[in-house]
Amino acid sequence: MTQEVMIAPHEITFQEIPIPTVSAKEVLVKIKRIGVCGSDIHVYHGRHPYVTYPLTQGHEVSARIEALGEGVTEFKIGQKVTIEPQVYCKKCYPCTHGKYNLCENLKVMGFQTTGTASEYFVVDASKVTPLSDGMTYDEGAMIEPLAVTVHACKRAGNVAGMKVAVLGAGPIGIMLSQSLKAMGAEIVMVTDISDYRLELAKKCGADFVYNTKKVDFAKAFVECFGEDKADIIYDCAGNDITMEQAIQNARKGSKIILVAVYAGMANVDLAKLNDSELELNTSMMYRHEDYVDAIRLVEEGKIQLKPLMSKHFSFKEYQSAYEYIDKNAETTMKVLIDVDPSDD
C-alpha cells in the first residue's frame, strides 16, 4: 500500500509498505478522506515545536472498516467510521481521572506517532467511532475539529441562553459558533479581519459579525450585546491582539476561554484580568463523548459542514494541497485529501 511521508519541511514523498495485519482488539480500516488543519500546516512549514521528521500525517479522518481483530464485536466490516487520534498512557493522573485528553504523555497521530495518511491503517478498536450511514466521508473527516468545538462549549458549562463572542472566523471559530447555537446560546457574535470568512460565519448561523479592521472592537461589542456585554468570550485566533480585546472589554466577572493554539509567548494585561476577576480558561482537544455529540449534531442538521469544505486533492497531490493553502490562505477553510475518492 501507499503511505505519505513528510521527510522534512516542504518535502512530501510516498513509500510502498505492506498492508498492516490486524491483531486482537484492533481494526483495519481503508482510509477515505483526510482533513488538513492548521497544526498540519505548522508541520509543513517546520514551525511545530513537538514533531520530528520524517513523519506520516493525518489525524482528521474518515474510513471504512475492512477487517476486525479477535475480540472486536462492536463493529462490522464495511461500516463507516472516524478515528480519535489521541494516544494516551492510561496511567497518569489525568488519564486515571477521566481526562485522558490531558495525558501527561499524550501523543497525537500525525504528530508524535504515525498518522493515518496511508491507504490502510490499523488502530485500536477503542479509538474508532462509528458514523451514521447517511453521513458522507467528507463530513466524517471533519468530526475531529468539530469535536474540538463541542468540547470547548462544554468548558463553559451550560451555554443555553448565553450571549457569546467568538474571536476568529477560521474553521474552528465558525464550527464553534455553530456548536454554541446548537447547544442553545442566545446570541453569538463572530469577529475577524476577513470579510470572506465573516460572510461564511454569517451564512453558517452567526447572529452578528464584525470586521475589527474596520470597526472598533469595543464599540462593536457593546453594539451587539448592550452595556452588560457578553457572558463568554472565546479566543479562536490565539494572539495578543484578540486576547487583549477579550481582557480589556469583557464584563467584570465573566469568562474568557482560549481555544486556539497561542502564537508564541503571551504579552497581555494580567493586571486588568485580575482587576476584573475574569475567569480565564482553556480548552484542549476532546474526549469520546465530544465525538459522539459532534456526530449527533451533524445528524440532527444543527451543524453545516459543507460550506467549510474548500477543495479536494487526490492522495498523490498532498504537497499541492499545502501549496494551495499557502496561496489562498484567507479564502481556504478545510482542504480534504481523497485517499480513496469513492463513496462506497
Rank of each mutant, 00 (worst) to 15 (best):
Q3I: 13
H10A: 08
I12R: 10
F14N: 00
Q15K: 14
I19A: 11
A24G: 12
V29L: 03
I31G: 02
K32V: 02
S39T: 15
H42N: 13
R47Y: 00
Y50M: 13
Y53D: 00
P54K: 03
V61N: 06
A63W: 01
E66Q: 12
G71F: 12
K76H: 14
I83L: 15
Y100P: 03
N101K: 06
L102T: 01
C103Q: 09
N105Y: 11
T113F: 08
T114N: 09
P130Y: 01
Y137H: 10
Y137D: 05
Y137A: 07
E139M: 12
M142W: 08
M142N: 09
E144S: 10
P145F: 11
H151T: 06
A152Q: 03
C153P: 04
A156G: 11
G157V: 06
M162L: 12
M162Y: 01
V166I: 05
L176K: 04
K181A: 06
I187R: 13
M189S: 13
V190L: 02
D192F: 10
I193D: 09
L198N: 04
E199N: 15
K203W: 03
K214L: 14
F221R: 03
D228C: 05
D228M: 13
D235F: 12
G238H: 04
D240A: 08
A246P: 00
Q248C: 07
R251C: 06
S254F: 05
I256G: 01
L258G: 01
V261Q: 08
V261E: 06
V268Q: 07
E277P: 06
T282P: 01
E289R: 10
K306Q: 15
P307A: 09
K311Y: 03
H312L: 03
Y318M: 14
S320Q: 15
D326M: 10
N328L: 12
D338R: 01
D344N: 14
